[in-house]
């Protein structure tokens, strides 16, 4: 039972990291064009170097 003292905070922390990551993607507007993004990976346009 003592392990709970570690495990619960760890699980909450990991969930929190996920939440923060979600906020970050939201802020970077990664959900504005889901269909376009899924198609863009098929394009070879910026394979050599990243888009300036």
């Amino acid at each position: 039972m003592e392990t709970l003292v570690y495990l619960i905070p760890i699980s909450l922390f990991m969930g929190g990291v996920g939440l923060v990551a979600f906020f970050w993607t939201l802020k970077r507007r990664q959900y504005d064009d889901p269909k376009g993004d899924s198609e863009r990976i098929l394009s070879t346009e910026w394979d050599e170097r990243p888009k300036p």
């Binding site: 064009d33 269909k35 376009g36």
Partner: peptide, 25 residues
């Protein structure tokens, strides 16, 4: 995907166009 690149490339070729981004959704 082809439509995206076609449109963006063609628009960028136009003089004065700084950037063009297609939103497919």
């Amino acid at each position: 995907a082809v439509c995206i690149t076609d449109v963006e490339r063609e628009l960028q070729r136009h003089e004065g166009v700084r950037s063009a981004r297609v939103n497919l959704t």
